[in-house]
């Protein structure tokens, strides 16, 4: 079974087509990156896959469940870390994680166990009792990803997880994301080519709501006829704009 499958998935906002007949297949356990300039349709695609936006037409399935007909099932198997660090600012790191545990209906023992696991996994012991609003950008991102993992999702969506982070915080977060590889399917959107190169099994480049290129790094380089993801990205996006 595929982790994600979309068939002619389309999202229109009045005159704007944000996602245009998107056909996409992501295998289980893959770390799949969606690249594209602003407005390419990456976030809208993720929103539809998390049941946060309704498709205008076409179909999206996550782990075989329809994002339209089986919303409850899809919501119970996905986790999302949105672009902004969506955390409760006056709650501590531990309280934020406990809150998410309760939202997923865990009993007290499992709440404590799962919270402890994630604090340990992300090395957040020293900030566990600090309020979220006092944390640095890097810690907030880690907390945001930990909150997305609380419900033990089978598919994790990371929407620009390292946006605005300094280079050290970004590298640290990459290590955390890499440590999750293979344990669940991860779909990542990013503007950082280096990030996609470093982390992804496969990459899709979106432009105008469509996929302009899809494959491993070497396949994309081959398709663009240039070396390096950044050069390939520019060649593909500019080529697609000229068409």
């Amino acid at each position: 079974m595929l982790a994600v499958k979309t068939t002619k998935l389309t999202k229109r906002y009045k005159d704007l087509t944000a996602v245009d007949e998107l056909d996409l297949e992501v295998k289980q356990g893959e770390l799949f990156s969606l690249l594209g300039v602003n407005g390419a349709g990456k976030t809208t695609t993720i929103r539809m896959l998390c049941c946060l936006a309704k498709a205008t037409s076409g179909e999206a399935c996550v782990m075989g469940k329809s994002c339209d007909k089986d919303k409850g099932d899809v919501k119970s198997i996905v986790g999302i870390s949105p672009q902004d660090t969506a955390v409760a600012p006056r709650l501590t790191v531990r309280e934020n994680l406990m809150f998410m545990c309760r939202v997923y209906g865990f009993d007290k023992q499992k709440c404590v166990q799962r919270t402890g696991e994630l604090i340990s996994k992300f090395g957040m012991q020293k900030v566990a009792d600090s309020r979220a609003k006092t944390l640095s950008g890097g810690w907030k991102r880690k907390l945001s990803i930990a909150m997305a993992l609380i419900g033990e999702p089978q598919v994790l969506f990371l929407d620009e997880p390292t946006l605005g982070l300094d280079v050290l915080a970004r590298r640290e977060l990459w290590r955390e994301i890499e440590s999750l590889k293979g344990k669940l399917t991860i779909i990542l959107t990013t503007h950082y080519m280096e990030e996609a190169e470093q982390l992804s099994d496969r990459i899709a480049i979106m432009t105008g709501g469509r996929i302009a290129a899809l494959g491993t790094l070497s396949e994309i380089e081959k398709q663009a006829g240039v070396q390096g993801l950044e050069n390939a990205f520019v060649a593909i996006v500019e080529g697609s704009v000229q068409k």
């Binding site: 998390c50 955390v87 939202v103 997923y104 419900g151």
Partner: peptide, 11 residues
Amino acid sequence: GTFLMRLYATP
């Protein structure tokens, strides 16, 4: 913010 959006994606 996106806090409510995160909760919308939960049950």
